[in-house]
Amino acid sequence: NQESVVAAQLIPINTALTLVMMTTRVVSPTGIPAEDIPRLISMQVNQVVPMGTTLMPDMVKGYA
């Protein structure tokens, strides 16, 4: 089963992602794949992401 990127903390809107903000977990439905974490660093979220929420492609500016 593929791991997806999950918020390790509350991420406010327009925050640039850092490694410490993200963790990985096997979730359903699947979100952004864990191997894309290096690509996500410094990208901004376009909404508030509560802790434990799976990051979906449409939540990250410039990802999709």
Results as ranks from 00 to 15, higher is better:
L55T: 01
V27M: 07
G31T: 02
V45K: 00
V49Y: 01
T24C: 04
V20S: 13
V27R: 15
E35P: 11
T53S: 06
K61Y: 12
E35D: 12
Y63F: 13
A7V: 03
K61A: 13
A34N: 06
Y63S: 06
L55Q: 01
S42D: 09
M56W: 05
T24K: 14
V60N: 02
T30F: 13
T18F: 04
S42E: 08
V5C: 03
V6W: 02
I41Y: 05
V48F: 11
S4Y: 06
M59C: 03
P33L: 08
T23R: 13
T24F: 06
S4D: 01
E3N: 08
G62H: 05
M21I: 03
G31M: 03
L17R: 00
P38G: 14
M43H: 09
A34G: 08
T18P: 00
T18K: 09
P57E: 05
Q9T: 15
T15Y: 05
Q47N: 08
A16T: 05
A64H: 10
A8G: 10
N46T: 14
P12E: 07
M56N: 07
M56F: 07
M59H: 06
T30H: 14
L40K: 00
P12I: 03
V48H: 14
T53W: 12
G52Q: 05
V20D: 14
S28W: 10
A34P: 14
I11G: 00
L40S: 00
V26D: 06
V26N: 10
N1A: 15
V48E: 14
Q47R: 12
P12K: 06
Y63A: 04
T23D: 12
P12M: 13
T18R: 06
V6M: 09
A8D: 09
V49H: 01
I37E: 04
M43G: 08
I13C: 03
K61T: 15
S28Q: 14
S4M: 03
T54R: 03
M22I: 14
G62Q: 11
G52R: 06
N1D: 04
M51D: 08
V49S: 01
D36F: 15
V49A: 03
G52P: 00
V48D: 09
M51S: 11
L55M: 14
L55W: 01
P50K: 14
D36L: 11
K61Q: 13
P50I: 04
V45S: 10
M43K: 14
A64Q: 09
Q2K: 15
S4K: 02
D36N: 11
Q44W: 06
L55V: 09
L40N: 00
N14F: 15
T53M: 10
N1M: 15
Q47W: 04
T18L: 06
P57W: 13
I41H: 05
N1G: 10
I11E: 00
T24Q: 15
L40P: 01
M59R: 02
P29K: 15
A7G: 03
V49R: 02
A64V: 14
R39E: 05
I11W: 02
L10P: 08
E35K: 15
T24P: 14
P50F: 09
I32E: 00
Q44M: 12
S42L: 07
V60S: 01
Y63L: 11
I37L: 08
V27D: 05
N46C: 04
V48T: 12
S42A: 10
I13W: 07
L19K: 12
M22T: 03
L17V: 03
T54F: 02
N46M: 10
L55Y: 01
M59P: 01
M56G: 05
T30Y: 14
P29C: 03
V49Q: 01
R25T: 06
I13N: 15
D58A: 11
G31C: 03
Y63W: 14
S28A: 14
V6T: 10
A16I: 05
I32N: 01
V20F: 12
T30D: 06
Q44D: 05
L10N: 12
V5F: 02
K61M: 13
D36K: 07
R25W: 07
P29E: 11
A16R: 10
M56Y: 07
Q9Y: 06
T24N: 07
V20Q: 06
A16L: 08
V5Y: 02
E3P: 09
M22H: 00
N1Q: 14
G52A: 05
D58G: 10
T18G: 08
L19N: 09
T23Y: 11
M21T: 05
S4I: 02
G31P: 00
D58E: 15
M56L: 06
Q9D: 08
A7T: 08
I32T: 02
T30I: 14
T18V: 04
I13P: 05
M43W: 04
A16N: 08
K61R: 14
T54N: 02
V48K: 09
P57L: 04
L10M: 12
M43N: 12
T18S: 06
P38D: 11
V27S: 08
P50S: 09
P33H: 12
S28D: 10
G62I: 04
T53F: 07
M21W: 04
Q47K: 12
I11F: 01
V5M: 02
I41V: 15
N46P: 02
N14D: 13
N1F: 15
N14L: 06
N46L: 06
A7Y: 01
G31Y: 02
P33A: 09
A7C: 03
I11M: 07
N46R: 09
S28L: 08
I11V: 06
L19E: 13
P57T: 13
M22C: 03
P29Y: 09
L17H: 00
L19W: 12
